[in-house]
């Protein structure tokens, strides 16, 4: 049994149009991997396919979370199995307070009949909000409603901290963040790095990787990983762009 998030030969399409064309990568527990790639390479599709979004059809391949085949599970079951997706565009939930939402998500992880200890829950949430520099008023506000871009992303990280997944994908979490917010979000992620947890960070820019330093960097192009390297690869890409890799023969 391997302790990793393992994507093997993944093919997925939307409206009959194939986006992922045999994507393979493995994020072992304890590591942070980054996926970089030009627009339209399939970065966001990858995160949605792993989460189980119904618009996408998997035609081939597998996704394993440790020894669990995620593709056999419903969206919510994947979450409860330990998979978390920090959304690029987090959705608003009118009328549902942030605290109630996170509490419901935590409750969903408990055995039937067991109730959350409300006092301990709030204490824990307040401490994590402090780490993220979030005002307490965000507990009572409706989820993401009227939040600025940066507030939404912080809120994603707060949820991740509260749900303690085994593996998390951060989908362009840096987009729309100013440098201060970026640092805070990165701090939150770094605080969660542990030998028990793996991260896959999807980003367009190397900037985020200055703060969340990856162990491995993958380049995604046309639905496949075409190049894999260490953290220095991110700088190379920043400097030289993607063309030099794209024009290289595909590394097997």
């Amino acid at each position: 049994m391997s302790q990793s998030l393992r994507i093997e030969n993944l093919h997925a399409s939307v409206d009959g149009h194939e986006i992922l064309k045999g994507l393979t990568l493995e994020v072992p527990k304890g590591q942070v991997h980054a996926i970089m790639g030009p627009n339209g390479s399939g970065k966001s599709t990858l995160s949605k396919v792993i989460a189980g979004h119904e618009d996408y059809t998997v035609t081939e391949g597998s996704v394993f979370l440790d020894d669990i085949n995620l593709l056999d599970l419903e969206i919510d079951e994947r979450s409860r199995a330990g998979f978390f997706l920090a959304f690029q565009y987090p959705h608003e939930i009118p009328g549902v307070s942030n605290a109630n939402f996170i509490r419901a998500a935590r409750q969903a992880r408990l055995p039937k009949g067991q109730e959350i200890d409300a006092v301990a829950f709030y204490r824990e949430m307040y401490a994590k909000m402090d780490e993220l520099g979030m005002d307490r008023k965000f507990t009572a506000r409706s989820v993401n409603e009227g939040f600025s871009g940066g507030e939404k992303k912080r809120n994603e990280i707060l949820q991740m901290m509260m749900l303690e997944p085994k593996y998390a994908i951060l989908d362009e979490t840096d987009s729309g963040l100013d440098i201060d917010a970026l640092k805070i979000v990165a701090q939150g992620v770094n605080a969660m790095r542990s030998p028990e947890r793996g991260f896959l960070v999807i980003t367009h820019y190397q900037r985020l990787l200055d703060y969340i330093v990856p162990d491995v960097v993958h380049v995604l192009h046309d639905g496949r990983i075409i190049h894999t390297g260490g953290k220095e690869l991110a700088y190379e890409l920043e400097e030289k762009g993607y063309d030099w890799i794209i024009n290289e023969p595909v590394a097997a």
């Binding site: 919510d76 939930i93 009328g95 939402f101 996170i102 419901a104 409706s142």
Partner: peptide
Amino acid sequence: VSEEQIFYMKQRGLSEGEAMSLSVNGFVND
């Protein structure tokens, strides 16, 4: 209740029924 909202909520571990109840309760909350 949009499908994207339900997707978001399910990604956090709520079943479809739980996500729907929470959304509806949110709608009438005030």
